[in-house]
Amino acid sequence: MPDDVREPFADSQHQRDAVALGMWAFLGQEVLFFGVLFVFYTSLRVRHPELFAAYGPRLDWRLATIMTATLLVSSFTMALAVRFAFTRARRALLVALAATMALGAAFLAMKLWEYAHHFARGETPFVDLAGNGPGPGPHSFFGLYFVLTGFHALHVLGGLVVLASLWLVAWRTPAARLRATPTMAVGLYWHFVDIVWLFLFPALYLAARLT
């Protein structure tokens, strides 16, 4: 048995198929996981369209466009990393992974800056702190905003942790023994997280401007 294959698989192709299937199934459940948030979004938008009209423009669509571009480029570097993992180009792989991490971290930094900005302006999700009366209000809209982008940001953060461990493994492993399967699986995950953002971006930042 080659040393890159684990029980219970017979060969590395067999293992790669299984890992890919497992990752796709995992992403399937992630779709449902985020699906709840998008239904929550739809419900609030149908019941309280006025909130989106009133508070939607408070979101900074220019910054969000830069963030979208950042994530799109990171998807490209991730795709390169997967390619280099298969060709066992170790040095290029390390660079591509590092670039992906840097772009992901830049995204998170912009997100944090944005959060701080909103908190400074009192645009928080909290019902009590904001001093809102009963009923829907800015806390409803910003509650939605923080919950949706927060869970997405957590997924980006998780992706960064996994990317870092991939990078470390690649750093320690000689090129001849590099395993492409984990990079491939993480790549699928990273693209998925980017796609979620591609839905969040128009839904939150652009919706108020289009209606």
Partner: peptide, 24 residues
């Protein structure tokens, strides 16, 4: 695989709503 994540997110939302006082 396809139903449990809905529960998982729902439970997190309860925790968020209760813990942070967010109206969901």
């Amino acid at each position: 695989v396809l139903a449990t994540p809905v529960l998982a997110m729902l439970l997190l939302l309860i925790a968020v709503e209760r813990g942070l006082q967010i109206g969901i």
